[in-house]
Design a protein around this nucleic acid. Structure first.
Lengths: 206, 206
DNA sequence: ATCAACCGGAATGTCGTCGTCCACTTGTGG
DNA sequence: CCACAAGTGGACGACGACATTCCGGTTGAT
């Protein structure tokens, strides 16, 4: 691979991440190309179609999640604070938009992404461990679960443009409110809870 | 106005409300027409452009909000439960999408909508009263305010298609979590709160 | 019975985006 | 320094999704 080609590839990946974060998976290819300072032709030679590009983004994304979780877990004084910090970080719309993009991807795209799946699973397991610890510590309600944390993280995972302005401006406020709602102290007195029969069971996004 | 024309008008209004609720303000006019069992021509004769249609929807919407609030307030045993019930009702994405549609409207559209503004103000005042009462009762944290309640209500006010599936399926779970986070018991121990210096001050949607 | 009001939806025009293609430029090995 | 394979950019044709117009046919009211 020629040196300039390599450089362009890097620029494209970077630009794609940025553009998709702010406009979603459907962002015009030309926008991405321009942001990378490159012609559409170049973009299409590297990634034959949009899905190829998104898939490449996915690798990055899931790795960064796993890393962030580990970091939060080891730095925080206890499981619950670690969880809180992580959710606040990961729930930022800019990051979430990429998750949304990945979720829109047709399944075929993932056929040969074994590593992706592996990383994802490991990450989920660690998250689950953290949740259990927080609950064991008596800091977190027992009637919310790992799935809820994941949901929370992905709550605002859509194009920032389609988020109500209140949220786009201060996502952390709402995430914080929900985290407060997950604290042990906030457990319902009677039938006043988050309104469900336990866990959210749908498939998650990330 | 001829009887059949009148009938069609009603059908259009009803269909527009339904379609906009599920597809946002930008929903194809033809879709609305078809849902109403009417040709696009008819739709355009009644409402010269999309904004006219949205404005008409707005009247309905704000009235229904005001009514619902009154209902909740008088039926609930106390201010906090009334608030909770109202938010759960009003925060449903189907309803919220119309609010989003209204918010997208260019300002000129509202020039001659004095009644709209009046109803809106009255509604906001009552909501504020309810919040104060809930706080006075010691059921609601003092560091969240009316604006937050409104934000909450409009949190999921966007086209359901662009909501993460988790949310679209169970909006009440997340609303419930946030409401729990607003309860007095969930107040932060120290710097652990919803992450802000008080109220959200941006302009609200409804 | 008459006719103005009303209707449906085909037709037209616009817009934004995709993905291809090729004439031109540039890095690199000899 | 050269020759040429590798790489580049962006004009271009095709497309699909929509808004809006227009008019021949239909229907309610008198």
């Amino acid at each position: 691979m020629r040196a300039d080609a390599r450089r362009n590839l890097d620029k494209i990946v970077e630009a794609a991440a940025a553009v998709m974060a702010e406009r979603g998976a459907g962002a015009p290819m030309e926008l991405i190309a321009r942001r990378a300072g490159v012609g559409v032709g170049t973009l299409y030679r590297r990634f034959p179609d949009r899905n190829a590009l998104i898939a490449a983004m996915g690798q990055h994304y899931v790795h960064s999640l796993a890393e962030a979780l580990d970091r939060a877990a080891e730095r925080a004084p206890d499981a619950w604070s670690g969880l809180r910090e992580f959710v606040l970080w990961a729930g930022d719309p800019g990051r979430g938009a990429l998750a949304a993009a990945l979720a829109e991807l047709p399944d075929e795209t993932f056929l040969n992404m074994a590593e992706f799946a592996r990383t994802r699973r490991r990450w989920l397991e660690r998250l689950d461990g953290l949740v259990r610890r927080a609950q064991a510590d008596g800091r977190m309600r027992p009637d919310v679960g790992t799935e809820d944390v994941v949901s929370l993280m992905n709550l605002f995972a859509c194009h920032p443009d389609s988020l109500p302005p209140h949220v786009a401006e201060r996502p952390a406020r709402f995430l914080g409110l929900m985290l407060d709602g997950m604290k042990a102290e906030a457990a319902e007195a009677a039938g006043d809870g988050p309104g469900g029969t336990g866990m959210v069971t749908g498939s998650s996004r990330v």
